[in-house]
């Protein structure tokens, strides 16, 4: 039979009573995220050569790339921030920032029910050097592009 007078939580509770609260008052007090934390995928439209490797390798199929229309799009609500696209990008157009993605509201839902968080980049004027030598073949055009 355990001794009913032994209350091992009491010293701990008393210490908690006088010590500083453990709570981080989040919206008013933001701790910077650690360097190397995985947050949001960032895209640089200028360097992209539309090789489509990121779209093919994305496990969540969050990236859609159109070589013909020269658009690169990501669904921020689907992206799982695994970092595969950043690893495979031969042009270093993709990078991982430490910031968390923003919260979206129902007011941002499109008229046909498109989910928010769709981000699209378009490079309108294709420079001649940017077009991969073998158009239409889904292979990385790294060696030819550079």
């Amino acid at each position: 039979m355990p001794n009913p007078l032994k209350l091992p939580m009491i010293p701990r509770a008393l210490r908690n009573l006088v010590s500083k609260p453990a709570t981080r008052r989040y919206p008013f007090e933001i701790r910077p995220r650690f360097a190397g934390a995985r947050g949001t995928i960032e895209f640089d439209v200028e360097t992209c050569n539309y090789c489509m490797l990121c779209a093919r390798r994305c496990p969540a199929a969050a990236i859609t790339v159109s070589r013909e229309e020269r658009t690169w799009a990501i669904e921020q609500l689907t992206c799982i921030a695994c970092g595969v696209c950043v690893d495979v990008c031969s042009k270093h157009s993709l990078s991982m920032s430490v910031n968390s993605r923003a919260v979206h509201l129902r007011s941002e839902v499109g008229p046909q029910g498109q989910r928010p968080g769709h981000e699209e980049w378009h490079k309108p004027a294709p420079a001649a050097t940017d077009i991969p030598a073998v158009a239409g073949v889904p292979a990385p055009a790294a060696s030819q592009g550079a």
Binding site: Y26, P27, I30, Q76, L77, C79, I80, A81, S100, R101, A102, V103, H104, L105, R106, R115, P116, G117
Partner: peptide, 20 residues
């Protein structure tokens, strides 16, 4: 009404979502 992205969603994002 509110979409909180992230895999897994961070507590900070969840707090943002709850406040929204």
């Amino acid at each position: 009404d509110v979409y909180v992205p992230g895999c897994a969603a961070r507590p900070e994002s969840i707090i943002d979502g709850v406040v929204q």
